[in-house]
Simulated scan of single mutants.
Amino acid sequence: MKKLIIVALLLVGVGAVAFTLYNNKTEMNEAATLAMKSSEYISVTVEKVEEKTVNRNFQSNGIFEPSQELKLMSETSGAIVKIQKRKGDYVKRGDLIVQIDDRLIRSEYTIAKLNRDQAEKDLKRFENLAATDAITKKQLEENEKAFKIADAQLGALKKRLDDTQVTAPISGFINEDYYELGTLVSPGMALVDIINKNPLKLSVNVTESEISKVKKGDEIAVRVNAMSNQDFTGKVHFISDKADASFKYEVELIMNSKNQDQIKPGMFGTAQFMFSQEEQVLKINRKSISGSLKDPGVYLIKDGLATYQPVKINPLDDGTVEVLDGLKSGDEVIASGLINVKEGTKVKVQ
Rank of each mutant, 00 (worst) to 15 (best):
F173L: 13
I105F: 04
G269E: 05
V347L: 01
E250C: 07
V7P: 09
F268N: 15
K87S: 10
A112G: 10
M73P: 06
A16G: 15
M28E: 14
K82R: 13
L202K: 09
L96Q: 12
D317A: 14
K348Q: 04
D193F: 06
V298L: 00
V236R: 04
Q262L: 12
T233N: 11
S292M: 02
E176N: 11
K201E: 15
E343G: 00
I239P: 05
S67C: 12
A134Q: 05
A146F: 00
L293F: 13
G269T: 07
K158V: 10
S60V: 11
T26F: 06
K37R: 12
N340C: 06
G94E: 02
Y178P: 01
V311W: 00
V323Q: 01
S209A: 14
E30W: 05
G330E: 03
Q350L: 15
A112M: 02
V251H: 02
S336Q: 06
L4K: 11
T320I: 03
K48D: 11
T110C: 07
E127T: 07
E120V: 04
G304W: 00
K158A: 14
I220A: 14
L324G: 09
M227S: 06
K48G: 12
K2P: 00
T76I: 08
I100A: 11
K328S: 14
V81M: 03
G234S: 02
K197A: 03
D303M: 01
T345P: 02
Y109W: 10
I263V: 10
S203L: 05
K287N: 14
K235H: 00
N175H: 06
D244A: 10
I80L: 01
G269N: 05
S212I: 09
S288G: 11
L70S: 03
V298D: 02
S107G: 03
S246Y: 06
I239G: 01
K213T: 13
E142H: 01
D331S: 05
G266C: 12
S171Y: 08
G15W: 04
T345Y: 01
D218R: 07
Q118H: 02
